[in-house]
Design a protein around this nucleic acid. Structure first.
Length: 829
RNA sequence: GCCGGGGUGGCGAAGCUGGUAGACGCGCAAGACUUAAAAUCUUGUGGUAGCAAUACCGCGCGGGUUCGACCCCCGCCCCCGGCACCA
């Protein structure tokens, strides 16, 4: 029968925390005064808001109807442990929580059940708030937010207006995946292999006029800023690759018998003399103008076929490349040769200029030319002088850098030299120039969906877009819509929306019917937490003093799956806001940590796979502290792992043992110390280890250290002081348990406002030490010596250890090595 | 294909800048308590041989550097994640 009643205890403390508003942060800087918290740091009493700030943020969840799953706990438990640790380290920690509430699942739910997304979302957020409380987190719920509420999305819309005003928002035609059967737009993931995820019908490409934000203008800054961030290198690398900076050159090819010029981008301008053909993307505007009369029919047909393909089909690497000759010829600006112009869908319209030149020194071009019998020639040979007969005879493709030949004045140069010189030469002739290109594309934010923030744009009777003036924000999402898809954006069917627009702007005016990508909502929420409930929070996007004080976020914790979406968008938006003068920082998230993924039998848990493990039963049986600690004990926080309930009993036993040892009425709780120095050494070594592990977020080894401490105390006994310090050490990990023990010890509420314990190194010093003794690198014995002993003496003592002596017998000593405090090593021959 | 991160007992995992591999926990085994079981406590627990001292083997595989390698170097294999016709 366990002594520690987790159910009662945990409930009791959660109630107390809420009642005393223990986790409400005074943001200062003009914020509403939230009551002053006192804390004993040494003898002085300080105001919490005078402490250095620490913005501890965790990525906010999407409020789905399912309960909190293990992934949530794995994310929020340790993140909270970190916040608690930082609070005890003396920081004024701000730890808010909210909901990323707009999005597809609520809308799909509405289509199925007819329940309005607003209703289901509110229900879900209420349940989730309750459940998040169970984790024992110190969220400041007074500053919560919900992106689907008008008081929030007015700022989403405000942001759009800022972008529009500053020329960073524009409209252009882009295709969406459309299911003609379901009459709805599909996300790329829903249109895998070209069929609709739901009904299996053939997905078509529908061109629509959509809104974009010019994130590409910030490509270079987004790369440069990464150097200033304490982020995982992996994540930075992923962003760098995503943005995809590449240095190269533009080359202009004139078209024979036409005034048109094709501009191509290349990173291998050193191969220009071998250019054998030019290829345009099917969408390239010049396809129409330059195609010869005789080829028109087939080119048009080819283009139509390409247009039908989804992006996934277009980019399927396995498929064989196809293309068609336009009948036109381009002139190679390097040597005046005439080369054919083709159209092929392996060329991407969105990258570079949607046109490339092909030659023998590129694997893809090589194959394409072979397939369509385009004649090639080589102009690069391997730099190492190896036999290149196969290359010259076009048996194999040589795609590496090398030495140029048959390249006019540039023959003999290395590829690297030639790239610079040829680009410069083209510049002089006005046939090209050096240029930097990025893979990053502009942010398409139009969504033909209902459950999102309406784009605050209206069109005059001529179809010209105008921003909705700020005084009309929030530009409310209408409620009189039919969720069942009918082929158009759902807002098209709202009578109220149309009427409202005409009433405000005049007859013939129409609203924009699309809503915004939910990544817009989450691109600035970290700023809005600062204003929720603050004075002027409804009128100011962010108060400058507040932003200056609290930004950037000191620690941001969330999944690595956001590396190239949310984490780039948020950075972009922050930079833009800085340029517009609303914030003072360039970067929103100073430090970033990704929690690992918890899988079930090696696969990601998901509702559709039906392999989700619910935390509830475990929390009921063992308590919240045990469950969150078990998740941390399983392994390193950043690595995640495969779920298994094996071993949770170990943590449960530990909690029980800890409770018994620390609570004075427990059977092993008598304040009897049988070995004071050993106990003190154990205590201070534990403080040291736990502190170091916490700092590195290695919660698993921190818990192990506390387990060892308890094991040690069963031998040495423990006194009151040690109990207090150990309870402080465990409090970020098991907050309810620690609070309870703190009270049992008669200490003042709350333990979270205690300073983090420091250790005294003098207790760690021992008078003897154990050294390993090696002969030729193999351990042959152990030696216990006094700490201050001379090196000579160590060697002397070590060499007479029986087993050591035996292994050295009859051999010549070569070398003696002493690693202080660790080992002695003899080398013999 | 390219770019990251990993492969350590039966299992989850530790292991500081090259210095006693396997801390801590699960599981298992034996013992104590109990009429018994559970719970709890104690002890043991990488493999092989041995009563033992001890020896040999052992961190994906094969080489190398070193007195000494999970750690560094070279060449492979496998798993996970990301990107993927970016010219």
């Amino acid at each position: 029968m366990p002594q520690y009643n987790h159910r009662e205890t945990e409930q009791k403390w959660r109630k107390r925390w809420a009642e005393t508003k223990l986790y409400q942060t005074d943001l200062g800087a003009g914020a509403k005064q939230a009551g002053l918290y006192r804390t004993d740091l040494g003898s002085s009493v300080e105001k919490v808001q005078d402490r250095p700030k620490y913005y501890n943020l965790v990525m906010f969840p999407y409020p789905s109807g399912d309960k909190l799953h293990i992934g949530h706990w794995y994310n929020y438990g340790p993140a909270d442990t970190w916040g608690r640790y930082m609070r005890m380290k003396g920081f004024n920690v701000f730890q808010p929580m909210g909901y990323d509430a707009f999005g597809l699942p609520a809308e799909n739910h509405a289509i199925k059940t007819g329940i309005h997304p607003d209703e289901s979302t509110r229900k879900n957020t209420a349940t989730m708030t309750e459940q998040l409380g169970r984790i024992g987190t110190m969220y400041d719920w007074e500053k919560t937010l919900d992106t689907s509420r008008p008081e929030y999305y007015r700022w989403t819309q405000w942001l759009f207006l800022q972008m529009f005003k500053n020329g960073l928002a524009y409209k252009k035609v882009a295709s969406v995946n459309f299911c003609p059967n379901d009459q709805t737009v599909l996300a790329n993931e829903q249109a895998q292999d070209g069929t609709c995820e739901r009904c299996g019908a053939q997905v078509i490409q529908k061109p629509l006029n959509q809104w974009f934000w010019k994130i590409t203008s910030y490509a270079q800054r987004l790369i440069d800023g990464l150097d200033t961030l304490a982020w995982p290198e992996k994540t930075k690398l992923m962003q760098r690759n995503w943005i995809g900076r590449s240095e190269g050159a533009e080359v202009r090819f004139e078209i024979e018998g036409s005034k048109e010029v094709i501009t191509v981008f290349t990173t291998r301008v050193d191969t220009l003399f071998s250019a054998a053909f030019v290829v345009l993307a099917p969408e390239h505007p010049l396809v129409d103008t330059i195609t010869a009369e005789s080829e028109k029919k087939s080119v048009i047909k080819y283009r139509e076929q390409a247009a039908k393909k989804t992006e996934l089909q277009r980019t399927d690497l396995a498929k064989e490349k196809t293309g068609i000759f336009t009948g036109a010829f381009a002139v190679n600006p390097a040597n005046g040769e005439k080369i054919p112009v083709w159209v092929a869908d392996f060329v991407l319209a969105q990258y570079g200029h949607g046109a490339v030149f092909g030659d023998a020194h590129d694997e893809r071009d090589f194959e394409f030319a072979k397939k369509y019998k385009i004649s090639l020639k080589t102009t690069i040979q391997p730099a190492d002088g190896s036999d290149d007969a196969d290359i010259r005879s076009l048996k194999v493709c040589f795609g590496d850098d090398g030495i140029l030949y048959d390249s006019g004045d540039f023959s003999g140069l290395t590829s690297a030299e030639a790239r610079k010189k040829i680009a410069a030469w083209l510049g002089e002739k006005e046939k090209g120039n050096p240029v930097v290109n990025f893979r990053l594309r502009d942010w398409l934010l139009s969504r033909q969906r209902y459950w999102g923030a309406p784009i605050p744009i209206v069109y005059d009777p001529d179809g010209k877009p105008h921003p909705v003036p700020e005084e009309h924000l929030p530009w409310l999402l209408p409620t009189d819509v039919e969720f069942k898809p009918k082929g158009e954006s759902p807002l098209t069917y709202s009578k109220e929306f149309a009427a409202r627009t005409e009433k405000i702007f005049g007859k013939g005016w129409t609203p924009e019917y699309d809503t915004m990508d939910t990544f817009v909502c989450s691109s600035f929420y970290y700023l809005r937490y600062l204003m929720t409930g603050a004075e002027g929070g409804e009128k100011n996007f962010v108060e400058p003093r507040m932003e200056k004080k609290w930004m950037p976020v000191d620690m941001y914790i969330g999944g690595p799956e956001h590396a190239c979406m949310h984490l780039i968008y948020a950075r972009f938006v922050m930079m833009v806001l800085k340029d517009f003068g609303f914030v003072s920082h360039d970067e929103p998230f100073q430090r970033l940590v990704h929690q690992g993924l918890i899988t079930n039998k090696g696969v990601k848990m998901s509702k559709s796979k039906g392999n989700v493990v619910s935390p509830d039963d475990f929390v009921d049986t063992y308590g919240s502290d045990v469950f969150r600690m078990y998740l941390m004990f399983m392994g390193p926080f950043t690595e995640g792992g495969d779920w298994s309930d094996k071993g949770i009993t170990g943590v449960a036993r530990f909690v029980e043992r800890f409770y018994l040892l620390m609570s004075s009425d427990g059977k092993s709780g008598e304040e009897k110390v049988t070995d004071e120095p050993a106990m003190k050494r154990n205590l201070h070594a534990t403080i040291k280890r736990v502190t170091e592990d916490m700092k590195k977020m290695q919660f698993n080894t921190a818990i192990a250290a506390l387990m060892e401490f308890v094991n040690g105390c069963h031998k040495t006994g423990i006194n009151r002081e040690a109990k207090k310090l150990a309870t402080m050490l465990i409090s970020p990990l098991a907050p309810h348990l620690a609070e309870e023990l703190w009270e049992i010890m008669g200490e003042k509420f709350s333990i979270v406002d205690q300073p983090w314990p420091g250790y005294d190194p003098s207790f760690l010093v021992t008078d003897t030490m154990t050294l390993a003794v090696q002969v030729n690198g193999k351990v042959r014995g152990e030696l216990e010596v006094a700490t201050g002993i001379q090196e000579d003496e160590i060697f002397a003592q070590a060499s007479i250890i029986e087993n050591v002596a035996r292994h050295m017998e009859g051999k010549t000593p070569v070398k003696k090595i002493y690693v202080p405090g660790k080992l002695v090593s003899f080398v013999v021959k």
